[in-house]
């Protein structure tokens, strides 16, 4: 089956793409930066973090680049002032949602949220921060789940389900009370389904799931499963 090649413009730059590609894929191929947090190549797109929203000429709506397919003669704008302001605010919201203290975080220097704040210039948070005190699950031999740092991107859940094929992880509750859980909200150490593959720690963009005893920046390349190497947003 042949795939149609189409032409479109991203930020005024003329690019070619294949019909089923998403805006994000085409932009990355052409070295146009669109920020993402919940997206990870190889997993189904969630469209939840809303950082990759772009404008498409002719529509008043914004589209998530990670899950919107390109179309012929589409004109995409990825960096308008209002988009940048929205993105800064979204990072502010995430930083203020739970307890994000980079200085004492295992993911310091290796965290995508931290990096996003730098990239977008979110140098302070206008909203009152919420300081959470969720229970940390360190019952697993090698892994720790700290909901206080979780941004609910669900990458861990998706990688566990779609790549490892286990679906140990899932969400409980909804809205602001959502939390990643192990099996039916049991201690991780007691899980029969978990294969300890560590993919969840590898894909976590922040320090919510990590491997015991090591800072994320140390563990990164050597111990990560092949699947995630080079896929994290840089």
């Amino acid at each position: 089956m042949s795939v149609r090649t189409i032409k479109l413009k991203i930020d005024g730059k003329e690019v070619t793409a294949q019909e089923a590609d998403t805006i994000l894929e085409v932009a990355r191929e052409n070295e146009i930066f669109i920020p993402t947090l919940c997206y990870l190549e190889g997993l189904t797109s969630l469209g939840g973090c809303r950082l990759c929203l772009v404008e498409v000429k002719g529509s008043p709506k914004l589209f998530p680049a990670c899950s919107t397919a390109v179309s012929n003669r589409m004109e995409v704008i990825t960096n308008s002032d209002s988009l940048m302001e929205y993105r800064r605010m979204i990072v502010e919201l995430l930083l203020s949602e739970r307890t994000h203290i980079c200085a004492v975080c295992v993911a310091n220097d290796s965290c995508e949220l931290q990096e996003m704040a730098t990239e977008l210039g979110t140098d302070h948070v206008r909203f009152n921060r919420k300081w959470t005190n969720h229970k940390i699950d360190s019952s697993h031999e090698n892994l720790v789940l700290d909901p206080n740092r979780c941004i609910l991107c669900t990458r861990c859940i998706r990688v566990c389900d779609e790549v490892e094929g286990v679906h140990t992880l899932d969400l409980k509750m909804r809205g602001k009370d959502s939390q990643v859980i192990i099996d039916l909200d049991e201690p991780w150490g007691a899980s029969n389904s978990c294969t300890s593959c560590m993919k969840c720690a590898a894909v976590c963009p922040v320090g919510a799931i990590y491997i015991k005893g090591k800072a994320l920046s140390e563990t990164k390349d050597k111990e990560l499963p092949e699947f995630v190497l080079g896929r994290r947003c840089r």
Binding site: G47, G48, G175, K176
Partner: peptide, 10 residues
């Protein structure tokens, strides 16, 4: 709010 997207959830 279901909590899936950041603007609505937070």
């Amino acid at each position: 709010s279901c909590g899936k997207c950041v603007p609505c959830r937070v």
